[in-house]
Structures are given as structure tokens and as C-alpha cells.
Design a protein around this nucleic acid. Structure first.
Lengths: 257, 257
DNA sequence: CACTACTGAGTACGTTGTACGCGGTCATGG
DNA sequence: CCATGACCGCGTACAACGTACTCAGTAGTG
């Protein structure tokens, strides 16, 4: 029975009752780790590197965090804290969900490594709980809790899927050390060969016709989001337009810092 | 200029022109790697372990694959090959997309480690190209190629998001070595504490009320999928019902082995 | 038949997460 | 007020990882 009573990173008290004051804090460690991951990717945020960043010895971190996996949990929850859901639920569910979705996407774009840090659902850190209360609260009055859960999963799935697409490119570029233009140049012969084989007509049209999207990334995300929100609206009890507006025009100006 | 002319794993010829016959093949190696990853997770599929599985020396694999990352690409494309899209496009886009979506989800459930193997978009292996042709072909006659791309991203995002949710649980259980019931038991005090704090009323209702979903996983996925397909239908040019059916009842019986 | 490009494999290196144990420090029980 | 022991930060050490380098053997080519 070594650590049989170990339960959960969020249960483990930050400050012990006895002994000398800790020189650092979990928040400080997570902050440094996030800083490194932002600059050089999650795989660069090794225990030694993080310790060096805050000026500590390598093994000191294990006084604060039981394992690197738990530290990643801390980092992920810290990121959730960046999403602004103040004043939610406001009564206008569509506005709330739109703001949350743009905030979530913006956070992903700021911290692309979240794509590889994503673990199972039950993280349940304080910041994630805050998001659950704010965002699911927006639909809470209109649908049963099961349905709400499913709708949130749909919304989160769209946002994270879209963000993952946008982000994975940049991540791959950084990880492999090959610039985007260089990658294109290297892929050119392969793509050319695919085109000439004639076996892939649709991919060929993607490669040749769909080169420049007529919408910017933000607009593309926003219009897809409106489609998803229409889906959600359709699942709500009828005669519940949320506000006067509906359809493809965003009822709330997308605020995407 | 060591490997400056290295382009792409798919360009590198499997068999060289000269020299003795290779004892193994890429397909065989990828097969073994998939077998190990299925049984023990992707992180267990190390180069040494794979080599041992096929009875080769550790370093021999590098004769076939330039790096482990490229091997993971091979594995991912092999998985795409499991998805049955024969006869697509059939003319009934809704049936085609439904079949594809169920096939994709089933593949994810068979190989949960794909969640952590997922890299950037431009994998473009032969199997993925096959899927692109078959699935995007279903909508090709109805929408411009850009729109088609966006709709496929929406569908893939839903399926992969849903599959990721289902799968990440199992992955976490295997990775941490903690069984689901044990995890629940360990989390109990934490959840209890959250409930008693009274700060998280909605999470509280999730924990207490939404315990048993009234639909099975398959049904839940299927009904969500129909919602997404409704979304896609709405984006198509009007008066294009695909077939007589529409709405929440699946026009095609979900085949999910 | 000679040549040579290619084969599978062994050894070795740098980096990772982390188990273990040390000497010092400070809140607390008597 | 002081002795005690829980806790601090940290150094050392280890196993496992990806993979660079090297070599003797082999089979297709001229």
C-alpha cells in the first residue's frame, strides 16, 4: 500500500501542513511549462527543461506533481482558464455558445500543442468545471441534461476538429523542422505523380482548383459554427429562436483576439 | 546534402533495383506494428518491439522506413484501408456518408491508439486517397469542391470527435493501468467534494442524473450523425432530398460491427 | 566470374521519465 | 523553549527510447 490512497491531482493539497515553505508553486510550474510548450512544443517541455526554466533542480518538480502526466493535466486546465465565459449564461444561448466557441478556438491557436496533450474526458480541473457551468448553463433551461451533454459534445467536437485541422499543420511544420514552402516543394513531385496517374480525379481538383479559399480562416470557422448552432437550434424544443436572428449571419460579432 | 532529395514516404520505392531480396516488407512491418498497438497501445510499438515481433534485428527496420514517424504514417494509412467504401459514390449521398461514418467510427473503436497517432492532414497515403475519392465523390455532383471539402471536414470532425470521446476513456484506462471501476472509486471523494461545495450545480446534475444514458453508444452516435447529415443537407442546393427519407430516422440501417 | 549495391544485425550515444536517498530546515508537541 | 520529525530541494542512477554508425555477408549485373 504505497500510494493506494492516491486519488486525483486535484485532491492532492498544494501546501502541506507541516515543514518548510515550498519555494515554488504548481501554478508557477504549470506556467513555465506552458511557456516552453508555446515556444518549442509540448515535447520540449521535459521535466529537466521546466525545472531549469524556474531555476530548480530536475527532481524538485516531483515534490509538486506526482508525474509528468499529471503536470500535463495541470497545463491543460490552465489553458481552459484563458477562455472568457464571464456573464454566462446571459439568457441568449446562441450568443453565449458563439462566444465560447470563438474563445476555445482562439485558445487552441495560441497553444497548438493542446492537440497532442488532449487526454480523456474526466480531467475535471477547476477551470474546466467553470466552463461546464457557464456553457452548459446556457442551454440548461431548454433541454434535459443528457441532451445538453450531447449538444455540448457536438459543439466541442466541431470547434476542436476545426482547430485541430488549422493547428496540426503548424505543429507538423515545427516538429519536423521543415518549413511549409519547403514541404510543398518536396511534395510537389508526389502530388504531380498522383495527378498524372489519373486515378484520383477529386483529389486532383482539390489540389488544382481549391488552392485559395475564398473565405479567410476566421470566416470559414464562423460560418461552419453557425451551421452547427443551427443544428443545435433544431434539436431544441420548437419556437425557441433564441433571438430575432437566425441562419448564416452571425447574431453576435465574432470576437476572436 | 545527405537526404536533401528525400521527399515523402510514399515516394520512396519499396524494392530497390539491385541487391539481394529484402527479407521483410513494409506491409508486414506495419501489420506487426498495428498488432502490437492494438494489444498494448501505440507507445508499446517501439522499434525494438516491432522488430522482435517479426523476428528481425532492431535496426533492420530502418532499411524499410526512414524513421518511426514515417512508420506511424504507414500504420495510419493501413487503418484507413479497413474502411469499406466499395461502390461509392452510389448516387445516394446520404447512404454513402452514413456508411462511411459508421465504418470510420468502427475503425476507431478497433484501434483506439489512432487518437494519439493522428498527425497533420497531408498524409495522403493510398488508402486515404481512396477514401477521399469515394466519400467526396458522393457530394461532388452537388456542391463546388471547396464546399465539399468543408462539409467533409464537418463530417470527419463529428465522427472523430465522437470516437475520440468513446475511445479516450479506454485508452486512459489501459495507459494508467487503473480499471474503470477503480478509477470511479478513486474519483468518488473528489466528485463528492465538488457536489458538496455547491459551486457546480450543473456538473452535479450530470454526475447524479445523467448516470445511465437512455440510448446505447451506437444509437447515440447514429442520432448525432443524422443531425450532422441534416446540417449537410441544409447546405446543399435546395430540393435535393437525396432520397425519400429525412430527419432523425436513419435511412440506412447502421452497420456497426 | 568479378564487382558492388544492398542486406540484416550489433554496438553505442544522447535523451527521456523517474526511483531512491541525502543533508538541511522549519512548524509544532511537550 | 527546544527537540522532533515531516518536508524541503537536489544529485545520482537506471531502464528504455530513437537512431547514427559500422560491418560481414549476399545476390543481381556486366
Amino acid at each position: 500500500m504505497t500510494d493506494a490512497e492516491y486519488v486525483n491531482i486535484w485532491m492532492r493539497p498544494e501546501r502541506p501542513a507541516r515543514g518548510p515553505k515550498p519555494a515554488y508553486s504548481r501554478a508557477q510550474i504549470a506556467e513555465a511549462a506552458v511557456r516552453i510548450a508555446d515556444a518549442e512544443g509540448l515535447e520540449a517541455a521535459t521535466m529537466r527543461r521546466i525545472a531549469a526554466e524556474i531555476g530548480a533542480g530536475a527532481m524538485s518538480l516531483y515534490r509538486y506533481v506526482p508525474s509528468r502526466d499529471d503536470l500535463v493535466l495541470l497545463m491543460a486546465d490552465r489553458l481552459m482558464g484563458e477562455i472568457d465565459v464571464d456573464g454566462m449564461p446571459s439568457g441568449d444561448w446562441r450568443a453565449d455558445l458563439t462566444r465560447y466557441a470563438h474563445g476555445l478556438r482562439a485558445m487552441w491557436l495560441r497553444h497548438p500543442w493542446i492537440a497532442t496533450a488532449q487526454r480523456a474526458l474526466p480531467v475535471l480541473g477547476p477551470q474546466q468545471l467553470r466552463l461546464i457551468e457557464a456553457v452548459m448553463g446556457a442551454l440548461d433551461a431548454h433541454v434535459p441534461i443528457d441532451e445538453n451533454l450531447a449538444l455540448m459534445a457536438l459543439l466541442n467536437g466541431y470547434v476542436e476538429g476545426a482547430a485541430r485541422d488549422e493547428v496540426s499543420w503548424a505543429e507538423e511544420v515545427r516538429r519536423s523542422g521543415v518549413s511549409e514552402s519547403e514541404w510543398l516543394a518536396r511534395s510537389y513531385p508526389y502530388v504531380q505523380q498522383l495527378l498524372e496517374s489519373g486515378q484520383y480525379p477529386i483529389f486532383g481538383r482539390i489540389a488544382t482548383e481549391a488552392r485559395q479559399p475564398r473565405m479567410g480562416r476566421d470566416e470559414q470557422f464562423g460560418s461552419g459554427l453557425q451551421r452547427v448552432l443551427d443544428c443545435i437550434a433544431a434539436a431544441l424544443p420548437a419556437a425557441l429562436p433564441s433571438d430575432g436572428q437566425a441562419g448564416a449571419t452571425a447574431p453576435v460579432p465574432p470576437r476572436c483576439p
